[in-house]
Amino acid sequence: MATGTTPSSDRGVFTPGRAAITARHLRTDKWWLSPLVSAIALTIFVVYATWRAFANGDYYSAPYVSPLYSPCLASNCTDMNGGADWHIFGSWWGLSPALLVLVFPLGFRLTCYYYRKAYYRGFWLSPPACAVAEPHATYSGETRFPLILQNVHRYFFYLALVVAAILTYDVVLAFRDRDGNWGHAGLGTLVFVVNIALIWAYTLSCHSCRHIIGGKLRHFSAHPVRYRLWGWVGVLNGRHMLLAWSSLVSVGLADLYVYLVASGAFDDPRFF
């Protein structure tokens, strides 16, 4: 029999009886690159979004409202000239109004099946990559609190539909000029149109959407319309990762655009 060393641990791939290999993994490719990039990109967005959410300023420059601040539900919102500033929370709310609404898209993305993969791998290293041993001594997955709450994803999907509808309303309003006259568009309008297209594509590509629209059926032949819709959502669903990242970037850029215009860094170029 061949000789070799005996692993020091007795867990996971080092469990007695399995092939005695001292290395936690034998991968020779850049397996660490993807989780590292995911973790860095998500961290950048979280830091940026946290700063902007708590900033409570420079989120409106007619006719544009930052997607992080819409709908604006507290009385301390800037007047938005026909926009989604519905002060249903009244004046008792003294913090940034963004905090009232960001919980919905945040919850949607936090429980998203793609983002779960990204942060389980990138942050929690569970696992860091395929066939690379994770560092944790025990693992219960999504069987217990709090991760069992990932099962509420579909409810955040419903709420995300409402948020996407409101953001669509904001995009329609972006076809006005600064004084509220219709039939105008600027660079910001284009940014908003691209952003809302990506948000809708990401929202509708959701796995819960795919299930609700038709995946739950056992007899597609009895539901031809839902079968057709399921097929379309399936096409989007195949690009869920791409849409998750591109919509995340577009939301950040749309907010950044509004911030730059509202803070006077530059004027919104008008097309017509």
Partner: peptide, 12 residues
């Protein structure tokens, strides 16, 4: 190539 059995082994 890993050579061995349940009692031990190593890469050859």
């Amino acid at each position: 190539v890993w050579r061995g059995d349940a009692d031990g082994g190593g890469l050859q």
